[in-house]
Nucleic acid binder design. Structure first.
Length: 153
DNA sequence: GCCAACGTTGGC
DNA sequence: GCCAACGTTGGC
């Protein structure tokens, strides 16, 4: 059982989109970064908990929680010529990119990047290090701290 | 829209 | 396999 933070641009796909999706689930598509891919493929497991983080928006923040309901499988967009995520160097024999399926759990009172940066108890969080990673691990104590910061625990 | 930080690419 | 150039990300 592990904890993760997934970034998303709310203009493209927000926590509300996840909540409103069929069965409140979505295939987390379009990860095109090797480090993030390796996490998805090797370490993200069914049952893991995920903070949804909104980036590239007015108030970057952790806005909710989702659960992993399906382990990594090939991202079909990499084979779709008409997709922005198309990758000519990937093949169906050995797909380069994968995605997992997430299920909506709950909204949180947003925990802003500003607040996260200001919290000296959060020392390990990759977000603080200006990481551009779209998927990053969170250690359990820091997951709890962020939960408490949102007023839930 | 700027810019810093980081990842990826490609020449050698 | 190094490293410079280039592209992308994402906060401000």
């Amino acid at each position: 059982m592990a904890y993760w933070l997934f970034k998303t641009e709310p203009d493209a796909f927000s926590i509300d989109d996840l909540k409103n999706a069929p069965e409140q689930q979505t295939f987390w598509e379009g990860i095109r970064n090797y480090q993030a891919r390796n996490f998805l493929r090797d370490e993200v497991k069914v049952g893991d908990s995920v903070f949804i983080y909104h980036s590239s928006c007015k108030v970057p923040a952790v806005v909710g929680i989702a659960k992993v309901v399906k382990a990594a499988e090939p991202d079909p967009h990499q084979f779709d010529l008409s997709s922005d995520y198309y990758d000519a160097k990937s093949s169906t024999d050995s797909p380069r990119w994968v995605g997992v399926t997430l299920a909506y759990e709950q909204h949180l009172r947003p925990v802003t990047l500003q607040a996260i940066k200001a919290n000296t108890a959060l020392t390990e969080l990759a977000l603080k290090k200006g990481g551009r990673l779209s998927i990053m691990p969170i250690i359990e104590p820091e997951w709890q701290i962020i939960l408490e910061m949102s007023g839930q625990s």
